[in-house]
Design a protein around this nucleic acid. Sequence first.
DNA 1: AGTAAGCTTGTTAGATGATAACATCAAATA
DNA 2: TATTTGATGTTATCATCTAACAAGCTTACT
Lengths: 181, 181
Amino acid sequence: MTTSKPDATVLRTFAPERHDHRRCVSTALSKADAACTASGLRLTPLRRRVLELVWGSHTPVKAYDLLAILGRERHQAAPPTVYRALDFLQEAGLVHRLASMNAFVGCGEPGGTHAGQFLICSGCGTVAELAEPGLSKTIAASAERLGFEVVRETIEIEGVCADCRRSKPRTGRGAASTAAK
Amino acid sequence: MTTSKPDATVLRTFAPERHDHRRCVSTALSKADAACTASGLRLTPLRRRVLELVWGSHTPVKAYDLLAILGRERHQAAPPTVYRALDFLQEAGLVHRLASMNAFVGCGEPGGTHAGQFLICSGCGTVAELAEPGLSKTIAASAERLGFEVVRETIEIEGVCADCRRSKPRTGRGAASTAAK
DNA sequence: AGTAAGCTTGTTAGATGATAACATCAAATA
DNA sequence: TATTTGATGTTATCATCTAACAAGCTTACT
Ligand SMILES: [Zn+2]
Ligand SMILES: [Zn+2]
Ligand SMILES: [Zn+2]
Ligand SMILES: [Zn+2]
């Protein structure tokens, strides 16, 4: 889902308990329409549908899952169909590919192309997208010292989101032995 | 290659002009022997050979490249052979998998398992491994604000190393039109 | 030594992820 | 309308990774 007021650096936050996800989707599609119109890109029915499917899932979507769905809807769909659409959406800055899990998520702040920074919950699979300038700065500084010029950042942090921590509290919670650290 | 004196945060630096890479390999193997002995893991001939091959290449190695080499040496080698060895080596903290390019590199500081931070040169393919605590700290802080508990970090920075920048200076160097930005 | 248990490797088969190459169709342009 | 460009359909293939079971080694115990 998208943040209502851009929470400092959070472009896309974890899904809250209950929310009308259809609104997330339609908002994303509207933004996409606007962005493509603005930059003269063609958000064709196929591409739009793929974007809708990507947003439709709350968790990252696999290319072959999309393929299966498209195969049912249209009566033809081969891998290139979905991969081409995804390539377009990535280049348009509308979706991101998560290298660590070969899957795709809708971008929480489309428009300008940007490398994303992601928090991926291994419990529920949801993803938050950050834009933490401090992070890029720290990276750039480290790189600088080695004379390395940064072109693209892949930052994917796996862990457990707040909801999942609440529902499955770790053993030793509170002041027990294995808790700290 | 490995750093002689742990350069603050650089676990594995870019390969310099000329160096005796065989020494890098044998050093890595010795460290691996020691680490496995210490933790009671079995670095079998096969696993050791795979590690040697990974280190033998200056750049990240693909699983199927290893498979091809093993196929020549032994007269039998199927995908599970190499993937199992790589799994072992990863869990033993001897190699890292680079998710952004489906390839493997030797760990510059084996022993404790750790998530790596990598600078990958798109010019020459070499990789540097960092352990920048500031980076992890910044990430942890961002995650904290969302109640997210970090488990594993995937940080892979693509760019151009110092050597490659020198040998192929970008157009517009200095004060030209396309330079800045 | 004998032998059972568990780890390691061999082997076959297949799932999943991604791309090349060419044909066809639709939209934009001249 | 004719031409050109871009989007999609189609077929085939490559690349990456894993499941499942069989066979071989090591280790530990009797
Ligand atoms: Zn949502
Ligand atoms: Zn984004
Ligand atoms: Zn390492
Ligand atoms: Zn380089």
